[in-house]
Design a binder for these strands. Structure first.
Lengths: 257, 257
DNA sequence: CCAATCTGGATTGTTTACAATATAGTTTGA
DNA sequence: TCAAACTATATTGTAAACAATCCAGATTGG
């Protein structure tokens, strides 16, 4: 008779010791294998942030399957993720559309983000290590060069990395994640700011000043810079929104058809 | 010959007017039909917060299917949601376990939450309408009564509703959601605080003082109360954690087996 | 007696097929 | 002529079957 097979878990034990492999995984948190749906989600984010997809544009599952050469399961999961992040909106039985933020929502998101970025700078330990400053400067050069040649994709990513590195200097992981999540919520409106070359230029100058403030351990200056740095993109969006609709009432009339 | 059928979308238009029904859905944001996976996720959250499921306990998809009388698709989605919220942890090919937070993570989460709650109180418009104060008082009575009879489920929900109502008074939706998300991250450790009856008593007194501060429009007092209110549960968890493991190194040794 | 290997089955991950829903264009009736 | 009902299909939602992975205990070799 065949040997009595293993039962992986007696199903009753409430608390149970972790197996060796699981413990290893938990301790080495860095080994984050990214799933297919994550890749799809990121790619769609990129499309949205670069203005290749517009607010209220439909995202049809079948189309995405063909584009990413996969089945609908992964695509659906990616759409659920993006919905939770607030980048797209899903309507039951009707599908997903790129989310269109109102000026009020944009202002609220930026207010919270400002609060958290200021907090990050407040708890950030000074002085900052030279190696960190060098890395930041390198990312800044990358950003600057991308602006010069008009490579918006690289502008986006080097800017993202610059900010991740900057706020990553504060040691509160939860705070870092919260800041990033809020930044993602406004991906859909970024392309409006990119349309103004002078805004990109201002961002570049801000980054340089930020590095200087970090080097000199001038916390208050850095806070003021961070606050100022957040202003242009939200203002660009609100201006564009009002140009589109004139005023909020008109917007509602149009959207309701 | 059959009539030429409709093609729902020409597939090419980048920006497209919304259909009447879709617009209606967007404007009436209150009609949030909750999906099956949301129900499952909430129920699991409840189990965790009430200590019915312990940190590192496994969550097997098939078991959950039977419990919620559904197929694995919904259960899987719920688990993905909970993972994103940070309430559970998923290990590829091995399944999901209730997440076990380290004291460091708990401190970080509470630090961010405190920052946001203080912000909410700072922007909250005074004076508060009498009807709102009455509602808060009603929720507080419910909470107090639940403590008296030891009904922890009602304690949890009435406490939740009290805080939702309180922070809901600030008009920044994004901020309200962020506060709630952070509160959810610590669901797994709530049962530790509930184990100390004096902590529940303190919470009850805090709520009463908060309502008084609101009624008198004493913003600074309210901020101090909110800060104080967050302390006990994180301290209870950290104490319990250290009782379990003595110190962090021991914890790591045990977890790694 | 210990360690390396093997193996059965428990569990998660993927794919496909099928059902439900909503909409654009057509038809029908006043 | 216009609006209400109808129909065909695009699209999403659900379910179940199949494949890949992983571990507990058994087996094997030293």
């Amino acid at each position: 008779m065949a040997a009595r097979p293993a039962k992986r878990e007696p199903v009753t034990r409430p608390v149970r010791a972790r197996t060796p492999r699981a413990a290893q995984d938990e301790l080495n948190v860095s080994i984050r294998k990214q799933s297919v749906s994550d890749v799809i989600a990121r790619s769609l984010e990129e499309d949205i942030v670069l203005g290749r997809r517009y607010p209220r544009e439909r995202l049809v599952e079948q189309d995405l399957c063909e584009r990413f050469k996969t089945h609908r399961g992964d695509v659906r999961l990616a759409l659920f993720e993006l919905e939770k992040k607030g980048i797209i909106q899903r309507i039951p039985n009707r599908g997903a559309i790129v989310r269109d933020l109102t000026p009020k929502e944009v202002r609220e998101i930026y207010a919270v983000r400002e609060e958290l970025e200021v907090m990050a700078i407040r708890i950030l330990p000074f002085p900052v290590a030279k190696s960190d400053l060098d890395q930041l400067a390198e990312l800044q050069r990358e950003h600057s060069a991308a602006i010069d040649v008009g490579d918006l994709l690289t502008v986006f990513y080097s800017n993202l990395h610059f900010h991740q590195m900057l706020f990553g200097l504060c040691s509160n992981t939860c705070l870092i994640e919260a800041i990033e999540l809020l930044a993602q919520k406004t991906y859909g409106i970024r392309s409006y700011a990119n349309a103004f070359p002078e805004a990109l230029d201002q961002a570049r100058r801000d980054h340089i000043e930020m590095i200087e403030a970090l080097r000199a351990s001038r916390r208050d200056d850095l806070i003021a810079l961070a606050r100022r740095h957040l202003k242009p993109s939200q203002e660009a969006y609100i201006r564009a929104y009002e140009r589109r609709f004139g005023d909020t009432n008109l917007a509602i009339r149009i959207l309701a058809k």
